[in-house]
Every structure is written in C-alpha cells, then in structure tokens.
C-alpha cells in the first residue's frame, strides 16, 4: 500500500445505506484520512446516525462501496462514544470498572491493560477519580469517562454520536478540549455526529452535511456554505470564510459567532 493510501482510513464511493429495503442515504462519496476531524452535521432524522452505523458495520454495506483501512476491518480498533450511556442508574459501578469495559474484544496482557487504562484517564483528565463511584461524577465528567472508555481501546478512528448533547458550555468545552488534545498529540481521527453547525465550524477540518437523502462531504469550508446550510436547515444562515481556515457562522438573526477550523 502506498504512503498516501496508508493514510486513508475510510473511503465511501457511491455508498447507499438504509434499513431493509428503505434507503436512507444514497451515493455517499467521502474519503477520511488519518488525523482529520470530521463532523457529520444535518437536521434531525436525515441520516447522520445511519452514516455512523454504516461505518460501524452495524448496517450492511458492499465492500466496493465502503473501503476501510485494514486496521478498521475489526471493530476493536474503532472507538465509539454514544450520545449518552444507557446504564441502569441503580447499578453500582466505579470509574475503573466502567472504563475497563472498553477493553472488550481487545487482547492485551494485564500490564498493557493497566497502561492503556491510566493513559486514557490521563487524556480525559479523570486520573484522580479512578476509584470514584461513576454516579458521583458530573454530567461532563461522565461524558469524559465515556471518551476514556473509547480511548482505552487505542482506536484508529473515534466515532462520536452527539456526545456534547445535553452538556452545559463548561462541560462541552472540557470535552472538546480533550478531543482536540487527542487529535493533536496522537493524530486520532474523529467522526463526530452533531446537529450543532457552530461546533462543527469551530472544531472540524472536514464535514459531511446530510439532508434529503444525500451527503455533501469535503473540507469544512467547502461544505459549511450558506447555500447548502440554508437548504438543509430551512433558516437563513450566513457563513463567512476567512484566512487561516476561520469560518464565521451566522444563524438566523443572532449575532455572528466565530469558529476556527484548524
């Protein structure tokens, strides 16, 4: 495999995904490379999570339409952070037990497991809460514990399904900083599903806008365009692209907000 090809983690070519005979999204063309930060955005119910499920191999996709890097052929190199954890709140668990569950399906000796565990908790800044009751954590800390559970797998690609949904601004900021640090220090590739265009403008290098059964994918400046966003969301949205990858998103009548994409 060439150096360039080795850099490609995922390539969709004319990909169609759906449930049974019902196609939800069709003709998806996108190429995800190592270290890129992808945001999958779009209105609710348009197929963002369907695209994620396709990548996770939870939906059937012909090999000719969806190529995955050999590292991703097994699910053990894919990290997944759900929107929320459906944990039964009456179940007792600690941060240690919760995060260690991320090692399911990964073969490693005890020393390697302990190293990954400590590293994952350090990465999300929960190292001092190792033996804390999971339920004593704040909402933001729980989301970071979810992130640690994904990171303990040492994933090649991290898939995030609206992990910032329901978090206050402080918790959202802490989560996004953790993710950005991971991207900068380890070159971790993200696929981040979100309905929040402003968040995408601030943190994405690339975006996939899903609406009307189609996916518009590419560098964030090419996708987060006012014409596409207005078609998708049906509200006035202005986007101003500036130098150094800075994108300004202006939704409706609210004031302009700035997001840096690099």
């Amino acid at each position: 495999m060439s150096e360039v090809e080795d850099d490609v983690m995922l390539r969709a070519t004319g990909l169609s995904l759906g449930y049974g005979r019902r196609t939800i999204i069709a003709d998806v063309n996108m190429e995800v490379r190592r270290g890129q930060r992808w945001f999958i955005v779009g209105p609710n119910g348009q197929g963002k999570s369907t695209l994620l499920r396709g990548v996770l191999r939870l939906l059937p996709a012909p090999a000719a339409q969806l190529w995955r890097h050999p590292q991703l052929m097994r699910p053990d190199r894919i990290g997944f952070v759900p929107q929320r954890c459906d944990l039964n709140p009456t179940l007792p668990t600690t941060v240690r037990e919760f995060v260690m569950l991320g090692l399911v399906g990964r073969r490693a000796d005890r020393a390697a497991r302990d190293r990954r565990f400590a590293e994952a908790l350090r990465q999300v800044d929960l190292i001092d809460r190792i033996d804390a009751n999971y339920w004593s954590l704040s909402g933001g800390q729980r989301q970071r514990a979810l992130l640690a559970r994904a990171m303990v797998r040492e994933p090649a690609v991290l898939l995030l399904d609206e992990p910032a949904s329901g978090l206050d601004l402080t918790a959202e900021d802490a989560l996004m900083r953790s993710l950005l640090d991971l991207n900068h220090t380890t070159g971790l590739t993200w696929l981040f599903v979100s309905h929040n265009v402003e968040l995408a403008a601030r943190y994405a290098t690339h975006a996939a806008l899903v609406f009307d059964g189609a996916v518009h994918a590419g560098p964030v400046g090419d996708v987060l365009r006012s014409d596409l966003l207005e078609s998708a969301y049906g509200v006035p949205i202005s986007v101003a692209q500036e130098s150094e990858g800075v994108v300004n998103v202006h939704i409706g009548r609210s004031g302009p907000r700035e997001g840096a994409t690099q």
Partner: peptide, 11 residues
C-alpha cells in the same frame, strides 16, 4: 450495563 456500546464494539 450498556447494550448499545456492546453492539458498537462488535459484540
């Protein structure tokens, strides 16, 4: 504890 994540992890 978390069936959804188990499915995502290939279980």
């Amino acid at each position: 504890m978390d069936t959804q994540t188990a499915a995502a992890m290939g279980v």
